[in-house]
Design a protein around this nucleic acid. Structure first.
Lengths: 246, 246
DNA sequence: CGTTTAGTTGACCGTGCTCAAGGGGCGTGG
DNA sequence: CCACGCCCCTTGAGCACGGTCAACTAAACG
């Protein structure tokens, strides 16, 4: 599928929002304008927000990977979502008093930070922008539902395959996939916490996927050799990502 | 905790929204007014919406239980959320072209159905109403995250205990708990699909909870004898429900 | 009454966990 | 420059949590 010239040159925030809902030219301009304001850089392994914190700032992720996670008192951790370039983090979260989960970077990250007022100004400037951010919030919710299905009803092989398929589709939309290959910067530990498995079992599962020739994962780079078979194994249906741009 | 007179007499939609975010008097009036329009009744086991459908109507649940669920091709089912009296179903979902999950009633249900236009009129009539519905959408998202933690990192006993604690708190807010007892109309099969366990194991787990004196479950009625211990075993932290009414 | 649906129990088994040990790569400091 | 420590990946062995299969009971319902 070819991308139109209008899309392929855009930065990830615009690409993603535009995949969720068609942005107007004015909307794109407004987003690009605000993006020049406050750009921050963070190292890997930093906690950007913690459960219990106040939640006043919205973050627009430009590059790098992060995750949302929750922990149990005894140290068990569950990653509930990955945050990828183009993702918006905690739009509207300021309506609640506190964060119900934490956010940590998995790699060095570059993002644009917006105070509540700046974000509200942005969404009130253009209806298509507002709707796109609503869609982004709903899409996060939809991904959470799919993850519940993943964690509750898929076995180890299916789970790992499913996470890989999701990452592939999400990265593709923001232009970070090149001939079925993409940077895959997370550790097997992170993968374990995302799939509800142990590190040891994730290791064995990845080897199974490698042995059957479906993927190559080397030097933090993942190549999908047979997406059809991989997505069949995972019973992956991309509809829940809502990249249909109604 | 005593409820003020203003709250205890309200119907569940107002009680729940008001727990998420303080409603204005005008907002409460607007909700009560619209609630007189189109009230529908459905039997148990009916599918209200199916994955892939268009999603134009918002439903406000007045009584009975329903669930959101997703299925895999081979029949495995995961309940991703319960829908209880006072819950709003698919506000803003019309921004997407299709449903990413299905909704089915677990008991006979009474709800108010709003077309997109009617819902948009409602939220544009009062800012506190609009914000309360935004909060409702965000709260659903937060519950999904907690469920991912539940499914990924808690063992069987903890999972079942956690679901019971959540239902207890959510029903309490809408006034459906009486001295630690509440109607518990779902089957062990439903519980299994919500916790990612098998029916057999849910049965054994419930018996374990009964044997340790934490709960009584008989005739579709559940009593919690020791909420403190139950919520400790579940590592239940009610913050994620966001009943803090910032 | 027969049929269906929900709950219960037992026996066996398998997926995935735990524990443990070892290897490779890389950064840091002596 | 090498030694050391740390992080991440890998592999093996044993085990346990929870699944599957099957049978039976009880209640609900036509």
């Amino acid at each position: 599928m070819m991308l139109s010239g209008r899309e392929s040159g855009q930065q990830p925030i615009v690409r993603r929002l535009n995949a969720l809902r068609r942005l107007s030219e004015a909307g794109i301009a407004a987003i690009n304008a605000i993006m020049r304001e406050k750009i921050l850089r963070t190292a890997a392994g930093e906690e950007l927000a913690s459960e219990g914190d106040r939640s006043d700032t919205t973050r627009l992720f430009l590059s790098g990977w992060a995750c949302r996670y929750k922990m149990l008192e005894d140290g068990r951790r569950q990653i509930v979502n990955f945050i990828l370039p183009g993702d918006t983090c905690d739009a509207f979260m300021y309506l609640f008093s506190t964060m119900d989960h934490s956010i940590a970077t998995l790699t060095p990250v570059v993002y644009c930070e917006l105070e509540r007022a700046a974000f509200e100004r942005l969404i009130s400037s253009d209806i298509s922008v507002a709707e796109a951010f609503y869609c982004e919030t709903l899409a996060m919710s939809s991904i959470q539902r799919e993850w519940a299905l993943n964690l509750g009803r898929r076995d180890a092989l299916e789970r790992v395959a499913h996470v890989i398929c999701e990452l592939f589709e999400r990265l593709k939309v923001v232009g970070l996939v090149e001939r079925s290959s993409f940077a895959f910067p997370i550790t097997q530990m992170d993968m374990a916490d995302a799939t509800g498995l142990s590190v040891v079992h994730v290791n064995r599962t990845l080897q199974e996927l490698r042995a059957s020739g479906l993927i190559t994962l080397r030097d933090r780079n993942l190549t999908i050799h047979d997406f059809q078979t991989l997505s069949n194994t995972a019973m992956f249906n991309p509809n829940y990502l809502h990249f249909d741009r109604k």
